[in-house]
């Protein structure tokens, strides 16, 4: 079995619309898959179908070669789940929570070691209702790991966490991967996907609009490399006319799109020869974030805003 997760033609219909609209993807064993999308794109719906918590309307889903809905009981012993809005018993401490899950799964983990791993030892004896949002999320992660899962489903594990806490969760995810586990991660943070994921799927209005490794997605959907000059607008016109390249003025800069990075030498020569004064230049290529904005819509602080319906 090469695929830990296999999804074919998956669709989920709520009353009047398709929240997930016939998607296909697969996740290889031992890799990290990031599911990216704006609010309401269908990430949680898809994730919960994979976890066996919701039923699909159409399509086929296999996780560890099991049907999550009908074989949920068997599947849940082998996967770890942290839901988007993780809640737990108010009066129970993280230490007791880990012990509880250990008994339920019959794994008897060392609570201290496990909580150390998610950076929550200092709060291991505080009741759940006194934990901060990020600390609750960390407990969710610890509980998801009590059964040594082969596949981990993490639905926005870092949303609402401070930068340091996010980094410690990232470390946990990298370690999970090193241990050979498969990670299915949903996130709003492009940086996170770019740093952690082997494969990325971008979902928007229930459809996967881009898929592949971060590089592949950028290559497929990003704009070409650009030269950006600090120079008067006349330079743009000059270059278009003499070289036939696509040059335009954006925010007071002259932006020249390149078919190939090798073209830059020819263009720089032409600029120098034109006699038009210029102060400097940078080269710029799209990152995942740029691709995202182009595909989905504007965002803020690295987090996505809801996209405008197509």
């Amino acid at each position: 079995m090469a695929h830990a997760i296999e999804v074919r033609g998956l669709a989920k219909r709520y009353a009047s619309f398709w929240a997930v609209d016939h998607i296909d993807f697969s996740v290889d064993v031992g890799t990290v898959y990031a599911f990216l999308g704006p609010n309401g794109a269908g990430k949680t719906t898809t994730t919960e179908i994979l976890e066996g918590l919701r039923r699909s309307t159409e399509g086929e889903v296999r996780v560890l070669d099991l049907d999550p809905w009908t074989d949920g009981y068997a599947l849940h012993k082998r996967v770890g789940v942290i839901p988007q809005d993780f809640r737990f018993f108010d009066k129970i401490t993280p230490k007791e929570g880990v012990e509880y899950y250990g008994r339920l799964f019959g794994t008897r983990p060392d609570p201290k070691a496990l909580l150390e791993r998610v950076d929550l030892v200092d709060k291991m004896n505080s009741r759940f209702d006194t934990l901060s949002g990020g600390q609750k999320q960390k407990l969710g992660l610890a509980l998801a790991l009590t059964n040594n899962p082969e596949v981990c489903f993490l639905d926005e594990p870092t949303t609402g966490l401070d930068p340091q806490a996010r980094r410690s969760i990232w470390e946990v995810i990298r370690k999970l991967k090193r241990e050979g586990r498969t990670v299915f991660l949903t996130t709003h943070y492009l940086e996170e996907a770019e740093l952690l994921a082997d494969q990325v799927g971008i979902i928007h209005h229930g459809k996967i609009i881009a898929a592949g490794s971060p590089d592949e997605i950028i290559r497929a959907h990003g704009r070409s490399e650009r030269l950006i000059f600090t120079a008067p607008a006349t330079l743009a016109e000059h270059l278009s006319r003499t070289l036939g390249v696509a040059a335009e003025v954006v925010d007071g800069h002259v932006v020249v799109s390149l078919d190939s990075i090798r073209d830059s030498v020819r263009i720089l020569n032409a600029v120098e020869a034109s006699g038009i004064p210029w102060d400097g230049f940078v080269t710029r290529s799209d990152n995942l974030e740029d691709v995202f904005v182009r595909l989905v819509g504007p965002m803020d602080d690295g987090a996505l805003k809801p996209g405008v319906p197509a």
């Binding site: 009981y73 849940h76 789940v81 809005d85 993780f86 809640r87 737990f88 339920l104 799964f105 019959g106």
Partner: peptide, 13 residues
């Protein structure tokens, strides 16, 4: 409502 049942459904209980 609080998702506690959902949480428990993910365990062997």
């Amino acid at each position: 409502k609080d998702g506690i049942f959902r949480e428990l459904s993910l365990t062997p209980l």
